[in-house]
């Protein structure tokens, strides 16, 4: 990946860290809910794939909208496409080290 694209992706992950799962209380990136962030080849769109801790979670619309709003604010010149996906199913093993620390695991 080119350096500029990688920087955009990193910035997108940082922006998504401002979205906190309201039940668990930690951000969706460290919770492992963000599966993929890619910049289109023409650099006009940012595509995000994210999931939820359980498929029946009533937060689906809320978290997707939050991700779109946050990324629009961060990248006003890019088209933002956020897609909710269920595969692979989320498991607690996807929580990052920082996420584990925030949850109180030493």
């Amino acid at each position: 990946m080119k350096t500029q694209e990688q920087e955009l992706v990193n910035e997108a992950y940082e922006a998504l860290k401002y979205i906190i799962d309201p039940e668990i209380g930690i951000n969706i990136v460290d919770l492992g809910l963000v599966y993929k962030v890619v910049v289109d080849e023409d650099k006009e769109a940012l595509r995000v794939e994210l999931t939820l801790t359980t498929p029946g979670c009533p937060m689906s619309g809320t978290i997707t909208t939050a991700a779109e709003q946050m990324l629009h604010k961060r990248f006003p010149n890019l088209e933002i496409k956020v897609e909710l996906v269920w595969l692979p199913p989320w498991t607690p093993e996807m929580i990052s080290e920082e996420g584990m620390r925030l949850l109180g695991n030493t």
Binding site: Y35, E49, T51, L52, P55, G56, P58, M59, S60, G61, T62, E83, L84, V85, W86, L87, P88
Partner: peptide, 10 residues
């Protein structure tokens, strides 16, 4: 990856 549906909340 399969796309998900929206919230089912009543």
């Amino acid at each position: 990856m399969s796309a998900a549906t929206t919230s089912n909340s009543p």
